[in-house]
Design a protein around this nucleic acid. Sequence first.
DNA 1: ACGCTATTTCGATGATGTTGGAAATAATGT
DNA 2: ACATTATTTCCAACATCATCGAAATAGCGT
Lengths: 106, 106
Amino acid sequence: MKLEQAAKQLEALGNPTRLNLYRLLVRAGEAGRPVGSLQETLGIAASTLSHHLHRLVLTGLVTQERQATTLICRANYPAMNGLIGFLADECCADAACVSRAEEAAA
Amino acid sequence: MKLEQAAKQLEALGNPTRLNLYRLLVRAGEAGRPVGSLQETLGIAASTLSHHLHRLVLTGLVTQERQATTLICRANYPAMNGLIGFLADECCADAACVSRAEEAAA
DNA sequence: ACGCTATTTCGATGATGTTGGAAATAATGT
DNA sequence: ACATTATTTCCAACATCATCGAAATAGCGT
């Protein structure tokens, strides 16, 4: 059931703290960022951050990789592309939604 | 704060019932669909549907227009395009996300 | 004004989410 | 083995959400 998966990812991004967190990871690019660095930037409790990261990982939007004692977090771009694709497909299935294609071509 | 607005819209779509509901409206196109018709299709209580519709309207993803005693609901395509744009911009700001452009061009 | 249909509001209940402190665990270096 | 740093798990408090039935409201036709 693709819709269930999409809903889970949307819900994961539908929290300001997590959306902000995810944005940090997206901007960090392939290098990613360690958990501690994210915590300093966001200024939230470590346990809270861990909780949010876990949710993003569960939905497949974020991946993690250990480097010694630190955990590097990265945005999972294919997952995001899949989600955008789902939204775009739903939107453009029957209706005239040309603006997205125009933006992409520009 | 654009991020707050995006998070609210994502949260609104992040519920399976609402995502399904929104998909129905998207597929209905400009004609839209009356609340009662949506209720029959979804098979949920009228009060529950009203609650979910209200949330979608509040975030700007859905618009409503009265026609006699029935309420016509329509997907707000510009809002969806804005949300997709937000996600795409965040995603492609610093990273190599060429697949979306490729898909759009195909 | 009255009745009819469509939809919303109210109230209540159970489920889930958010947050952070304290304690536990993981992984390294000495 | 031990200390140290990084991160997670556990616990608890509080807030928000999802769902539905019952009652209330909106708008039309007569």
